[in-house]
Nucleic acid binder design. Structure first.
Lengths: 345, 345
DNA sequence: ACGATGAATGAAAGCGTGTTCATTCTGAGC
DNA sequence: GCTCAGAATGAACACGCTTTCATTCATCGT
């Protein structure tokens, strides 16, 4: 219909549709608003003309008057990470189904979130913001984003500073205890006594929370406190540091990794370079249950964060907050559980 | 400074800043526009007041008058896929550095791109759109997005329909031949004679393009035409279908996978279930060179798509097009090359 | 057949910005 | 001390849309 030559360079506006269809511009607006009162035949005519003219309401203009941008900001430390991308995928799919578009931002590799970025994002007026405790201090989040839209993914066992800030936003709290208890119990049941915790980036709140809980559970079961291998969530570092631990430090018979990818690095170091067998010589457990964890080369036993459960909880928070902007802060809680595969016994 | 109680529910506007700083609203606008002419001390005052009031220019309003949304739409078939997420990560990082925000959309699992989605995205007025040949027919793309913003990631050896549509947008063309030639040569050099091509989703243009080139190169080298294993880019399917090929069909001594993840599935099937050795019994090559490909359990020899190269090329296209909206369609070309690891010889 | 009720309609206002454009201010040059 | 160019300033407009609000139209019960 529209060959490149005659093709209009600029978008069609409601005015053009109105003029073409011989209706008022207001009618066009109503035709696109499901709740507006307009004669059905008229709406059909308008929608038909709109389609011919390839017209779509301008979200920017619409956003200005309605106050709804239909944008949800998501701040992620590393989009390419399996866990992050898998959660991003689930959230984007769910948001899209609800009519939202995902506005994606990436933080720096050191996890620090530039305040400028937060301010910049605010300029887009997102209807909601999903931020990880990893990246941003709650006080900063509260100061910059003055609307009560952010959702903070945190951990209820955090220290005071965070607990105090809790009422400032809606939260998704992750209960780590259950999955960790199951994991430690299983490993101990198969004879593990000397544990190591393979940490993520040291300033990551997630890894800190997990480590505290792992230590607590191990202590509760009367086992010696775990050694510590400093990782950064990445495969290469986990591989190297595991090697160091066994060659230069004290070997262990169980490794609890702060994330699955780190566990893969540890497993490969043990098998490939150290000639040790997993699980016979060393038991390994990870955290997240990413798609890759069931790959046959690893078949990782891991503490699962249920993606569907998290996504639904986040969506509930967003929709409830949007429906009632002034309600006090909401909290959803998700649990964790162990998925048993082949790296323990 | 702003405790939750007194905190303003609505965002600060340029008007508020102007009144607080005792300047005109126009001055506020100029203070935030680097090229505007305004007395430096005045600008500093305004920026200071703006920061105190936590003011940021509203991108929606700004977008309406400037015609620049600072949004780049990216349409991805599966955000959670390693390759997709790694490219998304690189692009988002690069775009962010240039002042753009990523507007992320996901297509359905069958790769089909709903036209409604394209129309919806258009409503956000993205300054540019990055779409994969996988998802959208060029004619559809041209019809819906009437501004010359989309960038089409395609393959120059496609059939007429696509070539004809080429002048409609800027393109990033991927030259598959070089990497594929190197791969086939290497495998043949190590004694491979009977090839199988492990395909991706059958309606994926990438897998079709790769398969055509693989067949061509194999024929050129005087080898028998490759068998075909139908996959869908996923690990599980590759695993299962490789098993079927060896148990029910004819075994081969070399597998060329359409993507790395598929190669992993094939490798695991060969080693775990069939008791075959890689590379001694069967040689395997993948496509993409994702981070996971150098993991020791796989150490995959693969045809690399250079992420940095692609990202820079895409960015060049976007910036050039934005600088000159009416210029004829641009094309960037990226090559491929083999990364040799341990799955061939 | 007639008022009453509700649905359908269009004019006008407003959302928060950037950008003319005409005007005023500043300071250099002689 | 005066002229003149260039910088700095603010009033008004435009961007594309939704939403009041007052008005007209259709429908129904009696």
């Amino acid at each position: 219909m529209s060959d490149p030559a005659t093709r209009n360079r600029s978008r069609a506006t409601a005015d053009m549709v109105a003029r073409t269809a011989n209706v008022s511009r207001v009618a066009v607006s109503r035709a696109f608003n499901p709740h507006a009162s307009i004669k059905p035949e008229k709406r059909d005519l308008i929608l038909k003309v709109a389609q011919e003219l390839n017209y779509t309401p301008d979200m920017a203009a619409r956003s200005m008057v309605t106050g709804r941008s239909h944008l949800v900001g998501i701040i992620v430390p590393d989009v390419s990470g399996p866990w992050e991308s898998q959660e991003l995928d689930a959230m984007t799919t769910a948001l899209q189904a609800e009519g939202f578009a995902t506005l994606l931002f990436r933080t720096r590799d050191d996890l620090s979130l530039d305040e400028t970025l937060l301010t910049y994002m605010k300029g887009f007026n997102p209807d909601s913001v999903i931020a990880y405790a990893e990246n941003v201090r709650p006080t900063t989040l509260a100061r910059v984003l003055d609307r009560a839209v952010p959702i903070y993914i945190g951990y209820p066992d955090e220290e005071a500073a965070e607990a105090e800030a809790a009422p400032l936003f809606d939260r998704l709290d992750v209960l780590q205890r259950e999955g960790i208890e199951q994991a430690v119990a299983l490993m101990q049941g198969y004879g593990a006594r000397r544990f190591a915790f393979l940490a993520g980036k040291s300033n990551s709140l997630a890894t800190q929370s997990r480590e505290r809980m792992v230590r607590k559970v191990i202590a509760e079961r009367g086992l010696p406190p775990p050694l510590r291998i400093q990782g950064d969530y990445m495969y290469d570092t986990a591989y190297r540091e595991t090697l160091n631990q066994f060659r230069l430090g004290e070997p262990v018979d169980a490794i609890f990794a702060a994330n699955d990818v780190g566990a893969f690095g540890a497993i490969d170091a043990l098998r490939t370079e150290l000639g040790l067998r997993v699980p016979q010589d060393v038991k390994v457990v990870g955290f997240d249950d990413i798609h890759q964890s069931h790959w046959k080369s690893y078949s990782l036993t891991t503490v699962k964060l249920d993606l569907a459960e998290r996504t639904q909880a986040l969506l509930r928070l967003i929709l409830r907050r949007l429906k009632n902007p002034t309600s006090p802060s909401l909290t959803e809680t998700v649990s964790t559980r162990l998925v048993v595969r082949g790296t323990v016994g």
